[in-house]
Structure formats: C-alpha cells, structure tokens
Design a protein around this nucleic acid. Structure first.
Lengths: 190, 190
DNA sequence: GGCTAACCGGGGCGCGTGTTCCGTATATTC
DNA sequence: GAATATACGGAACACGCGCCCCGGTTAGCC
C-alpha cells in the first residue's frame, strides 16, 4: 500500500517493457506473444509479470495512454469555433494515426477489459459533442450516431492496417468523409 | 484416385460436418475450435479429419461455396443494363449477407489458403467490371480501385458484425454508398 | 447371414503461449 | 563495505487446441 519508490533498475525496465509493448502491439495487435515483448525489451518474461499482472493489463496500459491522447484531442476539437472544421481535423488526426497502429482499432470496441471502459466512455462523450455540433451546422448527416462513427472509424483503421498500399487509406478516408456529409442539400455550402 | 463412391454413413457425416462448420464459422469465424464443430455435428474430431485434411481445408470448403455464389451474383450484376443500379444491387446483397456472417470478410483477403485464391481472383475480376462500368456512367468516383473496395467492404462487414445494434449497418451502408459516389458534379444526375 | 473393407470415436501427442517460481544478482541503506 | 530487501531471468508448469492413431463398429457385397 505504502508505494515505496521503485528501484532505479525496476523503473528503467518498466519503461523498456512499455516501449517494446507499444511498438509490437502497434505492429501486430494483441496477437504478439508476450515473450517477444520481453525479448524486445531485453528482459525475461518474469520481469514483465512483475510489473503487469497479465498480458491484457499490459495492453491496457499501453492503449489507455493512446486513447487518452485521442480523447484530449477530440475535446480540443470540440472547443473549436468552426464545428465543421473541427470534425474534419479529428478525422485527419485519425487517418494519420492509422498508418500502422493496429492496437487502436482493437481498443475502440474491445470488451472485457475493465480498465479500458472509462476511456472508451470519455471518447464516446467527446465524439458526441463533436458530431453533434457538426450536425447542427449541417456538416454531418443527421442520422449518424456515435456508435456508427466508431464502427466506421474502426473499419478504416483496420483496413488501412491490412493493406500494404498506403494510398488505399487516402481513398478510403475520402469515401468516408464524403459519405458522412449530408447528401447535397441545396444551399448547404455555407 | 479411383473415386469409389463414399459409403452412405460417410457421406451423411460429411454433410453434417459441413453444415456445422457453416454455422459455426459464420458465427465466430476461424476462431472456433475444431472440436466444437465436431461436437455440433455429433461426430468425433477424428471423423472431421477423415474428410478434411486440415481445419483450414474445411474453412476453405465452406467459404469457397459462399464466395462462388457472390461471384456469380456479381457477374449477373455486371450484365445488367444500368451500371449504376447494378453496383447498388451488389452493395445491397453484401450488406444483407453481412448480418451475421463473419467468415465472409475473412475470406475476402485471407492469405495462405491455396484453394481460396482462384475464387478471390474471380471476385476481383467480376468487381473490376462492375466498378468500371459504374465509373463510366459517373456512379462511382473514378479514383476508386477494386482493392480499395475490397478492403473497405471487408473492414466494414467485420466492424458491423461486432456491433450488437443491427441498424448500425444500415447507416454505415448509407455512408459507404454516398461516399463512393463522385462529389456532386453538376449534371451527373442523368 | 457372414465376410471384408471402410469408417467412426475419442483418447492422446506435440506445440505454442500465458503464467509462476525460485535461485541469483543488484540497488539501496547504514 | 556489509547487510538486506528488492528485482531479475529463464526454466518449468498449465492449458487449449490442432492433429494423429488404433480398437471397435458398421455398411456394402456375396
């Protein structure tokens, strides 16, 4: 209970494990063997378990951080003056991150990971604001709900991760963006 | 080599295994344990292996059939008079099938399954015609290529399959459809 | 109805992978 | 610099699952 400060080498190893986990989870998702993470960190498997009670816990630790960043960004966008531009900025950010981060899509809807739920809910709430405001100014079709968006975004991230050709992502993002806009309603172009 | 006709009980069991595999693969994809399939078919695991040399072979057998149907449908669409409507019909069919068929998306891009390749190529070719014709009449944005479409559809079906709410799929299909259309080009509405 | 060959069932092997354990090494403290 | 708690490493364990094998059974044929 009395959190004694970690020994110096312990803290260093903890950081190394997190770093290795970040990279490998991003590359191959949850499928990567834990031993590989340990090896990449220059550490034995036992050491990983000293710091994280389970493989899932490690995944959580890595993923919560990434999701938290995303939530923060979404909140920043929500505070933007121009709701349409704000929504666009968020999509931009997501397509950037999509490059080769397979753990993000898994994190969106992963179930059964206790620690992920709060951040998922925060993301949901932030997106609700972002989408709602964009819909008010007619930048996003009104029937769209946050879960729809999450599914779509997840699909995009997944698709991007699987395709070897990076330009695929550009075209997919294009389709998504145009599809989210309301069907041309005369006079909607500010 | 001389394909002696299968014994009656053997043929019956083979059919049962295929049936069980269809259902379970559709529900949970390749992840379902082979023993479950055997149990569902009322058969021992050994019997499954008598008919299919490997679990992947069973998956192939089930999936090739489904893909072949899809290819046939796509070809039918390609022969349609109205290319725009034909493309739409294909999308409709796909969203219908998406309801709870997790093996379909996996089949689109599954690699390392020898038997799947020919059908995948056929699907690719059929889609190329379908998309090409739709593009000629301005129903689909010109920069889209078949791989884009495959990746996008796959990810979407997958993501939608995970969502408990079936209406999500409807809205996603809507977004997809509008997103694939070229950005309103005055005069494109026949 | 009996004979033969084909087929069935499920127990068991091997492997990959998450997890634990303990003897050894090292940081910290006095 | 010695004492002690803390952390390390990797071998060993547990387990799920794909896959094989053999004793028993059943279908097909005379």
């Amino acid at each position: 209970m009395a959190d004694r400060p970690l020994r110096a080498d312990a803290r260093r190893n903890r950081e190394r494990v997190l770093e290795a986990a970040r990279e490998l989870f991003a590359a191959s998702g949850l499928a990567v063997p834990l031993d590989d993470i340990a090896a990449r960190a220059g550490v034995g498997p036992g050491t990983v378990y000293r710091h994280f009670p389970t493989k899932e816990a490690l995944f959580e630790a890595v993923t919560v951080a990434r999701l938290r960043d995303l939530v923060e960004f979404a909140r920043g966008c929500a505070a933007d003056d121009d709701p349409a531009a704000a929504f666009d900025r968020f999509l931009d950010r997501l397509t950037e991150e999509a490059a080769a981060k397979r753990n993000l899509p898994e994190a969106f809807t992963a179930v059964g990971m206790e620690g992920l739920v709060p951040v998922q809910e925060e993301l949901y709430a932030a997106l609700a604001v972002l989408v709602g405001r964009a819909q008010e100014v007619g930048a996003v079709r009104p029937e769209i709900r946050v879960p729809d968006l999450l599914v779509l975004l997840k699909a995009m991230l997944q698709a991007a991760g699987e395709s070897p050709d990076p330009t695929v992502l550009d075209r997919i993002a294009l389709v998504l963006r145009d599809g989210l806009r309301p069907p041309t309603d005369p006079g909607s172009i500010l």
